[in-house]
Structure formats: C-alpha cells, structure tokens
Nucleic acid binder design. Structure first.
Lengths: 214, 214
DNA sequence: ATGCCTATGTAACGAACGATAAAGAATTCG
DNA sequence: CGAATTCTTTATCGTTCGTTACATAGGCAT
C-alpha cells in the first residue's frame, strides 16, 4: 500500500504560528485567512491537518499551556506558600509582558473574545482557569497541612484572590501596561500578602525566610 | 419648512437595549442583526439615528459609564482611603455579578473582545480604564495630603493594584463566578489592605474607624 | 513504470457581516 | 390640498467568514 505524498510543512511550527495569531487576535478575531497566512499554508492543508478552526485552537491552547505556562508548575513546587505565591505572581508579570509574544494571557484574552457562537471555547477556557485556581488551592491546603499556613486561612478564597490578581494583570498587560508596571502591582500584592501573614501564617513553626523569586 | 415623519422608537430605550447586547457579546461579537433585533428597529433606522456601529457603541458606552458605574464616584467620596477602597471593591463585586445585566465590566469585556479591526474601540476602552485608575490615584494622593495615608506609600502602585483586582473580578464574573465568590475575593483583598495598613496608613494622626461599607 | 494514496493549490461554496438604495408612509408647512 | 421633509420597510450591495470540491503534484509499494 502506498504511503501518499508527505506533508510539506512542519506541523508544530505551524501550530506555533497559529498560537501567536490566536493569542494576538482572540479566537473569533483570528480568521482562517489570518491563520493560513501566518502558517504559510492554504486552507485545505489546515483542515486536513487540524480538523477545523476550533480543533486548531484547542491544539494551539494545549501547546500554550505546555510551553508558556510551565512556570506555574515550577512556582507550585516552591517550598513555602509565600514563595509559591511570589513566584507565581512574578512569573505571571514576566510572561504577560514578555515582548517575544502577544501581551496578556491566552486563556483570558480568548475567553472574553468570544460571542456566544463560540461557547464551547469559552467553557474550555473557563475550565482551564478554574483548574489553575484549584491547583493553587490544593497547594495552599497542603501548606496548611504542613503548618506553613494558618489553620484558619480560607484556602479557596486565597487561591481565588491570587487568580483574580493574575487575571487582572492580564487585562492590564493587554491594555499596554509595561513589565515594570506589572511588577509594581506584584510588589504591592506581595507586600499585602506578607502583611496579611500574621493572619495566614501558622505560628506552629517559624516560616523560612522568603528567597528572592528571581 | 416641513418637519418630516417623527421617529417611531425611543432613542434612549433603544440605546439601553444596544448596551445590553454589546455588554453580553462584546463589540465585535454583537452583529447589526443582533442589535436591530434587540432594539426593535431596522438597520436604516439604526444608521440614521446613531451613525454606524462604532458610534452606536460609543453612545452605549457613555450611557454605561453614566449609569452603571456611578457607584465609583460615590465610592471616591468616602471619607478615608480605606473606605474608598472598600466601597469601590464591594460595589464592583455587586455590579459585576448583578443578575439584572450581563456579567463583568463592559470596558473589560469590550476591550478584549476586539480584533485589530476595532483598534479605536480598544483604545477608547483602555483610555476609560486608565482614567478610572488615575482618579483613584488622585484620591489616594489626596488621602496622603490629608494624612490618611502614609507619606511613603506609592499611590500610583496602590491604585493600579486595586484596578487590577477589579479587572480580575470582571474576568471572574464573566467566567461565571457568583456574587458570594466575588465578595470573598473582596474580603481577602480588604483583609490584605488593612493588614498592609501599618505600612500605608499615616501615623501622624489616627485614622477614623472604617464604617461598614453598606 | 504504474497504481495508489495523500498533500497541495485554485477556486468557489453558502452564510453572515456592516452598510445602503430605493420606494412607501407619516408628519408639518405653505 | 399638495409640496417638502424625514422616518420606515424591503431588498440588496460588496466583502469576508469558515469550509470544501476538484484537479494536480509528489512519494511509496509493487
């Protein structure tokens, strides 16, 4: 049996270009013409390789999560709750304002860039954001179990609070805020977090001094 | 000279319906067909009365700012910086999760709901958000002059921090967060703010006790 | 070389987009 | 009344949307 004509473009490379376009223009704002132009292919190649626009977006989103948001997993591995939050916020500020790719977070930009015609995408992105928030909540609960966070602290509320700040920074970045401005927001948030420390940090054992996050 | 046939629909009423549609679907997500259906008129009436889609959006936006965001001005009038922030955040949570209109903030939804074809709209909304943030910064600077905020506090950073939280809550609301969940975020933010009080509150004279915000 | 299978380029599909031309209906002025 | 003016309705403009037929080109197996 014959194998057929081989594909003339690099799938992952094309996916990266598509991700860039979706990131910059949103799901509905990115037209097939925009995507094929950036990917250097014609529409039939796109549909043959990726299915349709929605499937292409999902694959680009997966690539985004795997590559551009990897720092979140690293942040979660920090030893103390305070340092987890510090690395998470500092890493977010760096990523959201990185000039190497569009500003803001794809899961935020994409979610709000949909009319009701793209409800599945909106739900997918809301789900991704909820997952990230839940992961942070579990990390804080673990910190609580470790005695790193006061037993009375509301981990769900704290996680949602941090997630809210990250999402707000995404809006700020999309609106043109510079990296320095985002870092100023992070400084303020961390100052507030540490000030809140008396309420949320356990007194059962002293917390280690927070290392600089970068 | 003849006066011509009188208009058969209420302009402000139609504008409110248009606002609802823009709010729910974003600027580009709202089609002329969506708008005319909700407004109960035909396209030529829309164009005759409002110019074009962009002009209609701007008029709806002005109505939004005048009506739905009036609580911001009231919050600014609170006596202390702490209470200004408290009323601002609590009022935002209430507004963003109000079931009487679409979730989230139009200036956030609309801004991120644009491809580059609608750059003027995006700039307009970014400008509105910057204005709100600047107003808060000036209010905090006034609090500083009044001795209500520590001389060393960075008013611009604090204002941007609060604006970031509000914008993040808008994303949360658009993603389906309930009013109670947003209020939990506000509680956390206010707890952090008051904990930060030792750093930002002036010691020159004691601050008045914060009244309940509602 | 010759089928066979798959990717590619061209070209186009129906649908929806924002925006209007044209004609009829409603009101005021002369 | 009729002329003038303005709104409303119907039908459509040209463009762009996401998607796909169709014919051609290019590797593999026989």
């Amino acid at each position: 049996m014959a194998m057929g004509r081989p594909r003339a473009f690099d799938v992952n490379g094309a996916l990266d270009r598509a991700l860039e376009v979706f990131w910059r223009k949103g799901y509905e704002g990115a037209s097939i013409a925009d995507l094929t132009r950036a990917m250097g292919i014609n529409p039939p190649s796109l549909y043959a390789a990726f299915g349709n626009k929605e499937a292409l977006f999902r694959k680009a989103l997966q690539r985004y999560v795997d590559e551009k948001r990897a720092f979140l997993d690293e942040a979660m591995a920090a030893p103390t709750a305070a340092e987890v939050v510090a690395r998470l916020l500092r890493g977010s500020a760096d990523m959201l304002a990185d000039p190497d790719h569009p500003r803001g977070c794809l899961t935020v930009q994409g979610a709000l860039t949909c009319s009701e015609g793209a409800d599945p995408i909106r739900e997918e992105l809301a789900c991704r954001r909820a997952d990230g928030e839940a992961a942070l909540r579990r990390r804080l609960e673990r910190a609580q179990a470790d005695g790193d966070l006061a037993p009375g602290a509301d981990c769900a509320a704290l996680a949602r609070y941090v997630a809210t700040i990250v999402q707000g920074m995404s809006v700020q970045a999309a609106g043109g805020a510079t990296r320095a401005e985002l870092q100023a927001v992070v400084d303020t948030a961390l100052l507030a977090w540490s000030a809140m420390g008396g309420a949320v940090r356990s007194r059962r054992r002293p917390s280690r001094p927070a290392a600089p996050s970068r």
